[in-house]
Every structure is written in structure tokens, then in C-alpha cells.
């Protein structure tokens, strides 16, 4: 067990590699109750969400979810978040556990719209059921016809008779769902999901495989790949920045960077020579240090050692070779296309 933002969480239940494979080939169950939940409601809710996030909340219909970011005036990350539109004037933001208090204070401080902002983290338990067999397993318990549910949508539905919110989202690069419910009922549902998933070889999955799965899918991790020093554009997340939606915090800085082009950008790489790149290992190019590894690991689905780093844009084309310093030795790496892993759509 490790301490993760105040939560005791297992790195692995059985084996990182086996848990990883199970999610890619069958189904895995994650307890992600640590994720923070901030609710924003009232007539000013949409204007507040629109002002503090860079994606366009006006385009979000009730029942829809959006990946977005809370941004500082500099265009850097307060946090990356998913925004759920629960009702016309009611939003749920799911945020990184370690950032929950900071995000809540930031949103409250910027609340010039008389919206009601609440930290509702302790009101929800949250599970993620991920993998090609996730739908089949969850359908054994869910009242809603999950085959009718699109990606990044949610419904309120009974799951084994319990009131839940089920979304088609995840952090693994696989198809899957996230289930939100009241904490008192969580343990029983966890056991039930493992029980009904047994014939599909379900496994509980810990933080270790959660990291390798998200890295293969090139999903950013706050605190590693993105933080208050990196802009949304540098993080290669320009698709969540909607300049045409009007003003929002960080717009001016991001617009300037968009016009001039960011000086660096987050890229994926694989090791050419033997070695595993890990976070904070120095990255050198042309003999000088140009940055550090932000995430790095052995990638179980690829059988390669991969990572992410910010490289100056003039040297970040696919195929560019550079060096990662591993225990004082330069080890060759190469920029590759991302995501590293993409699931086959059925």
C-alpha cells in the first residue's frame, strides 16, 4: 500500500503486468474513489464553468462529459478535469485527488457568477470498470442498455438496484465505464462486480497498472506531465482549448502562444538502447540538457520502454534521437508517434 494524496492505495493487487494485460484483453476493476468531486450549480453555473475551464461548456448537453482543464491566467494547469453536465444549471467536475482543495478554492475565488460551489468528494465512491469485456460485465447488473451509451456520456441508472451514475469514460485507452455511487454501498458493489466478472476473468487493478495503461494511451498525469508550469498547448492538448467560445481565464496567454507557436511540446518516445526512462531523468540533445522525463516506464502491451518529455519544437519531430541519462549514462531514445497504444475498435 502507498499513500496517495492521503488515501491508502495498493500499487498492485496481484501483479502489475497481469493486471495490465487483463484490462487490455478482458476486464479490470479500479477503486478510484480518491478522485475529487466538485459540484457547481445555480443560474450562474454554466458561466462559471465557462470562465474557469478552457473547453466549451456551452457545447455540453445534459448527459454529456467533456475533458477539460482549469487554467491559470498564464494558460498553465490548475488541474485537468472531466466536466459532467448533470442538468442545465448543474455541473460535476471530477478532479485529481491531490488538487481537490486547491481546485475548490480556485473555483470559489473566481466565482463572480453567484453559482453554488461545493466540494462533494466525500459524497461519492467511484469505480472504473475497464476493458473489452467491461460492457458485458456491467450489463449483468445495470438496468440501462449500455450498448446504447456513447463514449463520454453518462446516465443515472440502477446497478444491482443501487442508484448510480454510470459514465462511458476511463483512463486506460480501453472501452469502459466509471460508476459513481454513495460510499455506504460501495464495498458491496465492489464484491458483486468481482463476483459477476469472475467468468470473464476480472481482476482488481492497482495504481501500478493504472499508470502503465494511461501512459500507453498517452493520457497526461497531473504532477508528472502537466502542472502549473506547463501550458495546455505545450501539453499537446490544444484540442481542449476553444478560443471561439469567448473569454476565459488563460485565454489571452494561450492565444498569444497559439499564434507564436509554443517553444516546446510534450512528445512520446521509446528507448532505442537498453534502459528504462523514469520521471525526472535528464534529457539531453546535442550535448546539452533540454528537459527531463515526465513519465517513463516499461510498456507491457508494447514490450518496449517508453516515456513522455517536453522537447523544443525545432527538435521534436518523429524520429528525432536524443539521450536519457540513466544512472549517469546517456541512453539513446527516439521520438515516436502517439498514442503508443490504440485499441482496435470493434
Amino acid at each position: 500500500m502507498v499513500n496517495f494524496a492521503g488515501w491508502d492505495m495498493p500499487v498492485e493487487y496481484s501483479s502489475v503486468l497481469e493486471e495490465h494485460r487483463r484490462v487490455r484483453q478482458a476486464v479490470g476493476l479500479f477503486d478510484v474513489s480518491h478522485m475529487g468531486k466538485i459540484e457547481i450549480r445555480g443560474p450562474g453555473a454554466v458561466d462559471l464553468v465557462q470562465n474557469v475551464t478552457c473547453n466549451d461548456a456551452f457545447r455540453l448537453s445534459v448527459g454529456q462529459i467533456q475533458y477539460s482543464a482549469l487554467t491559470y491566467p498564464e494558460g498553465t494547469f490548475v488541474d485537468d478535469v472531466t466536466v459532467h453536465r448533470l442538468a442545465e444549471d448543474h455541473f460535476l467536475l471530477v478532479v485529481n485527488a491531490a488538487n481537490t482543495d486547491k481546485d475548490y478554492q480556485w473555483i470559489s475565488q473566481e466565482n463572480k457568477f453567484s453559482a453554488r460551489v461545493e466540494n462533494r468528494s466525500s459524497a461519492y465512491a467511484q469505480f472504473a470498470l475497464q476493458g473489452p469485456l467491461a460492457q458485458a460485465v456491467l450489463q449483468k447488473l445495470a438496468e440501462w442498455d449500455l450498448s446504447q451509451m456513447k463514449y463520454y456520456r453518462f446516465v443515472r441508472t440502477g446497478v444491482k438496484g443501487l442508484p448510480t451514475l454510470v459514465s462511458r469514460t476511463g483512463y486506460t485507452g480501453e472501452d469502459g465505464f466509471e460508476i459513481y455511487l454513495e460510499p455506504a454501498a460501495a464495498e458491496a458493489l465492489w464484491m458483486t462486480l468481482l463476483e459477476v466478472g469472475r467468468s470473464d476473468e476480472i481482476l482488481p487493478v492497482g495504481l501500478g497498472a493504472r499508470n502503465t495503461l494511461r501512459l500507453e494511451a498517452k493520457m497526461a498525469l497531473y504532477g508528472n506531465d502537466i502542472d502549473h508550469t506547463t501550458t495546455v498547448l505545450e501539453a499537446d492538448l490544444g484540442w481542449i482549448v476553444k478560443f471561439d467560445k469567448g473569454s476565459f481565464i488563460g485565454r489571452d496567454a494561450l492565444w498569444k502562444q497559439q499564434r507564436e507557436g509554443p517553444a516546446r511540446r510534450l512528445v512520446g518516445f521509446e528507448m532505442v538502447e537498453r534502459g528504462i526512462a523514469r520521471e525526472h531523468y535528464p534529457v539531453t540533445l546535442g550535448g546539452s540538457v533540454v528537459g527531463e522525463v515526465t513519465s517513463g516506464s516499461y510498456a507491457p502491451s508494447l514490450g518496449k520502454n517508453i516515456g513522455l518529455t517536453y522537447l523544443p519544437v525545432k527538435w521534436n519531430a518523429v524520429g528525432t534521437e536524443f539521450f536519457v541519462t540513466i544512472r549517469n549514462k546517456p541512453v539513446k531514445a527516439r521520438v515516436v508517434p502517439t498514442p503508443f497504444y490504440k485499441r482496435r475498435k470493434t
Binding site: 500499487v11 498492485e12 502489475v16 503486468l17
Partner: peptide, 8 residues
Amino acid sequence: LGDVVFVE
């Protein structure tokens, strides 16, 4: 350690 994936 868990699953060993690299040895030097």
C-alpha cells in the same frame, strides 16, 4: 519488487 522487467 514485483514483476521484474529489466536487468542491468
